[in-house]
Design a protein around this nucleic acid. Structure first.
Length: 266
DNA sequence: CTGCAGGCCCTTA
DNA sequence: TAAGGGCCTGCA
């Protein structure tokens, strides 16, 4: 067990932030984090955090995963300097969000699955997929025996073909993960968008949540809605430079959970 | 029964 | 370059 006090960190907010699909709350108050063919249990009281692993494993694997080397107070300071009341409320609300550094292959496949889909269903599909591999997210090599109909039976619908194709590409080397990791943000996005089923949003999510290109600012329907309603259709995210992706997360999280909508959703 | 959910592809102008 | 229709599937 490794225990530590952390600033700007909230495991529940991270779990709900929508950037990851395999962090789940347990009934006993712990959170289970599935990543890198491991499962970490996390518990938190205020700043006091407990991680069910050794100090060595924590610093080697989980500290980078949770982006603990980044000082998020600087992002919040930058937001305060803009004087933008919406952003200040958003950052205040999602104070404990971090940009995770997740597995690249898993993010590419997960965000292809996510398109035109809702979060509960995305999670169910990924859960079904991982269940076939002892709870681990399968490698491209493990998926190369899958047919399109195998993917369809997991509930991927028309995305089955996209995932099938990219498995083949990962296996034949056309999708080169090591090369991607060496690229700039602009090059990585351009490279990813060659593949069927990967557009602007999916490429940006892979860049932000796996390659840690924190200047990326994925625009989905939620962010689009904020830009339209709060900013008259134009939002200058480039002003935040390498903090843009973090700002995006504050906005998304605040929009989804902070603003109670008067309609059906409770 | 419609409508739609964290897009993307393809076709047209 | 922009706009619009279609798409698997599950759920309200």
């Amino acid at each position: 067990m490794y225990a530590v006090e952390l600033n700007d960190f909230d495991i529940k907010q991270i779990a709900l932030s929508g950037q990851c699909f395999r962090i789940n709350g347990e009934e006993d108050g712990w959170w289970s984090v599935a990543a890198f063919r491991r499962c970490l249990r996390v518990r938190q009281q205020k700043k006091y955090c407990e991680f069910d692993c050794s100090a060595e494993e924590f610093s080697r694997i989980w500290a980078p995963y949770f982006d603990l080397q980044t000082d998020y107070s600087k992002v919040k300071e930058k937001i305060r300097q803009t004087g933008d009341p919406y952003l200040m409320r958003a950052a205040d609300y999602g104070y404990g969000i971090r940009i995770l550094q997740q597995d690249l292959w898993e993010m590419i496949v997960s965000y292809i699955i996510s398109q035109r889909n809702n979060i509960p269903r995305i999670k169910k599909i990924i859960e079904r997929l991982c269940a076939l591999f002892s709870g681990n997210f399968p490698t491209s090599s493990e998926l190369k025996i899958f047919t399109k109909s195998d993917f369809q039976q997991l509930g991927l619908g028309y995305r089955a073909e996209y995932v099938y194709d990219i498995v083949q590409d990962a296996e034949n080397g056309r999708l080169d993960m090591a090369l991607l990791k060496s690229m700039s943000y602009a090059d990585a996005v351009k490279y990813l968008k060659q593949f069927k089923g990967i557009g602007d949003k999916v490429a940006d999510c892979a860049a932000l949540f796996a390659l840690h290109k924190t200047e990326a600012f994925p625009i989905d329907v939620w962010i689009r809605r904020i830009i339209d309603t709060q900013y008259g259709g134009q939002f200058d995210y480039a002003q935040f430079g390498a903090f843009a992706g973090i700002v995006q997360q504050y906005m998304f999280f605040y929009q989804r959970y902070g603003l109670k909508r008067e309609s059906s959703q409770g």
